[in-house]
Design a protein around this nucleic acid. Structure first.
Lengths: 115, 115
DNA sequence: GCTCTACTTAACAAATATGTTAATTAACGA
DNA sequence: TCGTTAATTAACATATTTGTTAAGTAGAGC
């Protein structure tokens, strides 16, 4: 059985080569050879990285003659964003202050609104 | 040599047990046994998951008698948020429209401001 | 058909990750 | 001091990941 989607996404992102590939694809479509060019690893290795990204839904591919242009797919990144936002209050100062403010209001503190 | 921080963070998050541990810690500190309770795996396994989270800077620990209360640390999550925000335009409709608008403006389209 | 280009698949090696049970460390408390 | 509780470390098995080189597939173009 394969892992849940978020696990697959995080696994796919847990590799600098794959994140670099995504960064390149954010600028537009590219073929496998174009994607491989900046890296010091073999083409089959790149091909497998793309397979991982594709399995995670982060990349889709079409076929044009002998080329397989790759395109970035955003949906899983949106899921990552949604996931991490649940923790924003832990690092965001203004969120923390608003949180405290709302808590005070909820407690019925009449002075809370003065803050 | 160990991997770069972002890689370490994504690797740490690429496990459902570890994400569940973080979700629990977002509600407040907890001891190792408390964290282990919901899971069907051995305590040493949990201990190792915590070690991975700690190495990634996602968890810190203090010492109180024989307990080691764990606390969530937000900094790496903020880095994840920053990373993924670079791709927001790829999934965010309103961002896409704003992007198109700015592109039009940049082209010097005098009608762009009417949109 | 033959060859070139683009890319994937196969077979393998090495490293890393994840779980287990058993043994160990450390502090508390009767 | 001795037993209990909390947690880690050790030793081990197994699976997954990531890379390699060599071989295979598929379309383009002469």
């Amino acid at each position: 059985m394969q892992p849940d989607p978020l696990t697959q996404t995080f696994s796919a992102l847990a590799d600098p080569t794959r994140r670099a590939i995504l960064a390149r694809l954010a600028e537009g479509e590219a073929t496998v050879n174009e994607l491989a060019e900046p890296f010091d690893i073999s083409l089959p290795a790149i091909s497998r990285h793309l397979k991982v990204l594709e399995a995670a839904g982060l990349v889709s591919r079409t076929r044009t003659a002998q080329w397989r242009p790759c395109r970035i797919e955003a949906a899983p990144l949106k899921d990552v964003s949604t996931w991490v936002e649940r923790y924003r209050r832990l690092w965001d100062e203004s969120f923390t202050r608003m949180d405290a403010y709302l808590t005070q209001l909820q407690k019925g503190d009449p002075d809370a609104r003065k803050n």
